[in-house]
């Protein structure tokens, strides 16, 4: 039951993009085409799940055990960077088609704040191993959902008559604000 709760909470109610403002850079940068957005979302979900699976043991069995939790930022960012690198190498070898689709997005994921944020929140909330993996996956699903919806709206927006000064980033942010308002409706899901 708790696992379902974590999943719903991380993907809908506390959507990383729309309530914690994590992962805004790719959210704004790669959301102009639905196809790109979907690929970016999938790649990020994949890396997020792996990150949760990899950082949890490192934090619990290395940093806490040797009493150096203050090294967590350095340790986490190195793990994430290494992970992204390995995933990139593996995909390039195993599936060139997938690599062509995801290739350019993979390096960007290293500096996606949502990935590091996920590792930090995981530690802060003291999840156990299974919960952490679910949390990582759910966060990725939430990110994919948000970026996909945004790209859909932006494709329609190309035909809209936006005032000149609001064109580009500005109107995108205002749409994101409205999406955040809509997502607040999910908050009622868990209270009861």
């Amino acid at each position: 039951m708790k696992l379902i709760l974590i999943f719903i909470s991380a993907s809908l109610i506390n959507n990383f993009v729309l309530t914690y403002f994590l992962g805004i850079c790719p959210f704004l940068g790669v959301s102009n085409k639905t196809e790109n957005a979907l690929n970016m979302g999938l790649a990020t979900t994949f890396v997020m799940t792996l990150t949760a699976a990899a950082t949890w043991p490192i934090y619990t069995y290395l940093l806490v055990k040797f009493n150096v939790p203050f090294l967590e930022y350095v340790a986490f960012i190195i793990v994430i960077a290494a992970l992204v690198q390995f995933v990139e190498m593996y995909i390039r070898k195993s599936s060139p088609t997938l690599y062509r689709a995801l290739g350019i997005y993979l390096p960007l994921i290293t500096t996606n704040c949502a990935v590091l944020g996920l590792a930090l929140f995981m530690v802060l909330r003291e999840y156990n191993y299974i919960e952490s993996i679910i949390f990582g996956f759910a966060t990725g699903v939430g990110f994919t959902m948000a970026i996909l919806m945004m790209s859909g709206i932006r494709e329609e927006l190309e035909f809209a008559d936006v005032p000149r000064h609001f064109q580009g980033i500005s109107i995108t942010l205002i749409i994101a604000g409205m999406m955040a308002l809509a997502f607040m409706g999910f908050a009622g899901l868990i209270r009861g």
């Binding site: 500005s170 942010l173 205002i174 604000g177």
Partner: peptide
């Protein structure tokens, strides 16, 4: 959160 997006935009 919504207000942040609106003000920024």
């Amino acid at each position: 959160p919504a207000g942040a997006f609106l003000v920024f935009g």
